[in-house]
Design a protein around this nucleic acid. Structure first.
Lengths: 162, 162
DNA sequence: CCGAAATCACTGCGCGGCGCAGTGACTCGT
DNA sequence: ACGAGTCACTGCGCCGCGCAGTGATTTCGG
């Protein structure tokens, strides 16, 4: 077992924490820049990202949950995207209360083209990492993601300090 | 030199890209949850994070640049934080046009306490990574951060596709 | 030097995304 | 069959935000 109390290690933790904060701050700015460039809002871009990541269409509620919006705001979000031609609404045959939101590939081409272009450069970052390192990075991201959701549940359960 | 074209490696790239997206999506939700819990806006929390990360106070303009807001909106942001007692305004003696924004430690204690609590759990994630892995993760984050800023400059230089 | 230009924080104004609360349509459990 | 729960959707009002302009201060060119 590795020693988790060494002074080197403490410094590594601190560096990682600092880089994480900078990384996340940069991401927010980057996302904003992408949205500006496309003439959309960050939320809209985020939603398109969600839709393209999923193999099948999402319902309005699923979009609301994954973006942190209320269902009302999610309806408006889909309104904007539909008006812009990015998505179409389809009634769900299984449950007629639900509405499926399907992305329109042709309209999304411009967006994905931009992502692909930016992603290509991004991949070159990974080229001089070993496979073990890549696995370690991926593992850390996944576990941080999981912890994030755990913390969110904790925060929502906690009473508001006011 | 490692082979960067192998099928395993391509799969690792894809996994890492997917986990990154999930990680970043979770961060946005997490940040929102923290802000909700404190009765603040995500932007406000982000600003407090910036202020506490820096050893010396920032000017309104610096806050604007680092949050992606206009100076006008940054003024309003500082207004909110000042009204809430989180920061104080101090005129800059060197340049009398400028205003320095200084965090108020006592008022921020509650916020940092929450961060520390959440950060403690977060650190346990790192305990079963080797030091080499930690270095690899940190390096990746730093380079991704740098690339992000490069891409932002590219995006701003590009013409709007409209 | 002195006046023009740049930069700073700040302010009115209007837009629009968002949460809230309520509505009707639909599904499900008993 | 009927009530409870869930779905997407809709007015309404709030307020964060960008935009454009202002005055104060600094910087720079002739």
């Amino acid at each position: 077992m590795t020693d988790v109390t060494g002074p080197d290690r403490a410094r590594l933790y601190e560096e990682l924490a600092l880089e994480s904060r900078r990384y996340l701050a940069a991401y927010v700015l980057f996302n904003q820049a992408v949205a500006d460039h496309l003439g959309l809002h960050p939320t809209d871009v985020q939603c398109l990202s969600l839709l393209t990541a999923e193999p099948e269409p999402l319902t309005v509620r699923q979009i609301a949950d994954r973006t942190g919006l209320t269902t009302g705001s999610a309806t408006r979000l889909v309104d904007r995207l539909e008006r812009g031609g990015y998505v179409t609404r389809t009634p769900d045959r299984q449950d007629r209360r639900r509405v499926l939101v399907t992305p329109v590939p042709e309209r999304l081409a411009r967006v994905t083209a931009l992502w692909d272009d930016l992603g290509e450069t991004w991949q070159t970052l990974l080229d001089d990492h070993s496979e073990d390192e890549l696995r370690a990075i991926t593992r850390h991201l996944r576990r941080a993601h999981d912890l994030g959701h755990t913390q969110i549940r904790r925060l929502r359960a906690l009473p508001r300090p006011d």
